[in-house]
Design a protein around this nucleic acid. Structure first.
Length: 549
DNA sequence: CTGGAGACTTGGCCCCACCTTG
DNA sequence: CAAGGTGGGGCCAAGTCTCCAG
């Protein structure tokens, strides 16, 4: 992956600062001074007091169990009931602190900013093969309470503090080796150029490994990204063949082949994720295609005016709900009925299939093909098709709206949802007020224009002619402003529950967007912000106006 | 085939610096 | 100048997929 790699190692979380003595913790109504280890963990809970998490049974149970591990034997014997713990003063203290931070003077804020900048300059970059590259996450995650997503069995557990002794450093032999902080040493120093990470440690909640890697703007990430889209483009060339193939396989004598073919149909048509198996009880109960259970699908031979409708209802990645009703081909429907026979709701829909079998099959159909390539392919091809339908004479804001709509179509396909922003209603209202005002302005300006025209008709002099021109310009300007506002409102409304970022960043071949910008003379800044332009620098460089995905 | 380790991509949420507005 | 709103970016969890041992 590289020949030379030099960096300064990670930045560790700030050490724990004890509570001032005046800030008390109470047990059963009586003040109690905790030793630092238990106190630190208590502050994690105090900081989250306002969050719904802390009311959940599992969260409280997990927290209390892990908290007790940090207590002295004396503390342990005293503190036996979380309900008798009062973190109120601690919580108030942190709120006051954050308030104070907000109230800091300009100078102090500036000083903080400079300090951050210094840290970034010193630790935020590395040298990889003659290039200075930005590191993605050079700060080690601070200790705290684990918050899973959805119904996570481990929520509330203590995420322990990471020390230099936990860190494996990866760099090249001939580089200046990063120094561990004074009085400490690294767990290991290794020189493995078959991997891209600079440092790693094992996290204590799931026992998984975490990495420090380069920023998306780096050469190594960019090339990988490019490769990903090239694989998707190769799929484009053979997707017809594959579709014919899996339709044929719906008729197979073998159950495993039929299941494989129906699953692939879903992955292709609905852009479902592969769906690896997960260890039960270790994570939230979520599924993807191969791990769908009987309880997640319902079959309707007839629904309204449609035939063979399948209703999906399950929690996918990040416990985001996937809900969809779609008509399928008769043969798929019959197969599904067959798969469901004699099964319980909690049984696997595809009992003869998993991601490894599926991916092995895909690999045989096309080099480098895996389930997720279908998501990339379908996302990108959808964007390209949608953009082709754009009319050419639209104004710039209208063009951008069309782009966002195309982006939105992809986000819907990939089920990229978000919670409506807390400020949504309010900000919609504000926008509407602005639109109303602009409309009033417009009628006033039009009235003035009419007046000026009448004047000109009567006098026919140069001065009145000029006035007409000025008024006409004013009307035009206000019309444009109004249109812009209306477009903005439409865009925002349609975007209420849809997250565009994920597809833009991970699924849409950026060359399609770059080409579209060139073709319709839209400045690239209208589509990509600074970070995105950095990440997609390779594509901005590469794609001409006639690029075809 | 199974299970686990490891590496890397994908994903939603939240905070805060920055900008606009009153 | 304070208040309010927002986009960008950081955060870190949660997926995918490969590889390897047994």
């Amino acid at each position: 992956k590289w020949r030379f790699l030099e960096h300064k190692g990670p930045v560790f979380a700030a050490p724990y600062e004890a509570m001032p003595d005046r800030v008390k913790f109470y047990y059963d109504g009586k003040p109690m001074k905790l030793k630092a280890p238990a106190e630190e963990v208590a502050t994690f809970f105090a900081k989250m007091l306002d969050h719904e998490y802390t009311t959940k049974d599992i969260f409280r149970k997990n927290f209390f169990k892990d908290w007790r591990k940090e207590m002295t034997s004396e503390e342990k014997s005293k503190l036996t009931d979380l309900n008798k713990c009062d973190f109120g003063e601690m919580s108030e203290y942190f709120k006051a602190q954050s308030e104070a931070r907000k109230q800091m003077s300009k100078g102090e804020k500036q000083k903080n900013k400079e300090e951050n900048e210094r840290l970034l300059q010193e630790y935020g970059f590395c040298v990889m093969d003659n290039h200075k590259e930005r590191i993605g996450n050079f700060r080690i995650e601070p200790p705290g309470l684990f918050r899973g997503r959805g119904d996570h069995p481990k929520m509330g557990m203590l995420k322990r503090r990471i020390r230099p002794e936990d860190i494996i450093i990866n760099c090249s032999k001939d580089s200046k080796q990063p120094k561990a902080p004074p009085g400490t040493k690294w767990k290991e120093l290794r020189h493995d150029n078959k991997v891209t990470w600079l440092a790693s440690w094992t996290e204590n909640i799931q026992g998984s490994i975490k990495y420090i890697m380069l920023n998306p703007s780096s050469r190594i990430k960019g090339e990988k990204d490019w490769q990903k889209y090239e694989t998707a483009r190769r799929l484009k060339k053979c997707v017809d063949r594959l579709r014919t193939q899996y339709r044929e396989d719906w008729k197979s004598k073998e159950m495993r082949i039929r299941q494989r073919a129906v699953a692939l149909y879903f992955i292709d048509k609905l852009a479902l994720r592969a769906g690896n198996e997960k260890e039960e009880g270790e994570t939230a109960d979520t599924v993807g295609c191969c791990s769908l259970r009987v309880e997640h699908v319902k079959l309707y031979p007839k629904m309204d005016d449609q035939e063979y409708v399948v209703e999906f209802d399950f929690l996918g990645k990040d416990s985001i709900r996937y809900y969809n009703k779609i008509p399928v081909e008769k043969r798929v429907f019959k197969n599904l009925q067959l798969f469901l026979e004699n099964k319980q709701p909690e049984d696997d829909l595809f009992d003869r299939l998993n991601t490894s079998i599926l991916n092995k099959h895909l690999q045989e159909l096309m080099d480098g093909l895996t389930a997720k390539v279908f998501r990339t392919y379908n996302a990108s091809i959808t964007l390209q098709q949608q953009l082709k339908e754009l009319a050419s004479d639209d104004s710039l804001p209208a063009k951008v709206l069309s782009y966002n709509r195309a982006n939105r179509a992809v986000a819907i396909l990939c089920n990229h949802q978000r919670a409506p922003p807390k400020t949504f209603e309010k900000s919609m209202q504000n926008l509407q007020t602005k639109i109303d005002e602009k409309q009033n302005q417009l009628s006033a300006a039009r009235k003035q224009l009419r007046g000026a025209k009448a004047e000109h008709k009567a006098s026919h002099d140069d001065k009145s002619k000029k006035t007409v021109e000025v008024k006409r310009k004013a009307v035009q300007r206000i019309e444009e402003q109004l249109m812009k506002l209306q477009v903005q409102a439409t865009d925002r409304e349609e975007n209420k529950q849809i997250a565009l970022g994920t597809s833009k960043l991970n699924y849409l071949d950026p060359r399609i967007s770059v080409a579209w910008c060139k073709k319709w003379v839209v400045p690239i800044e209208k589509i990509y912000n600074k970070t995105q332009r950095e990440k997609f620098a390779w594509a901005i460089d590469m794609a001409e106006r006639d690029y075809e995905f």
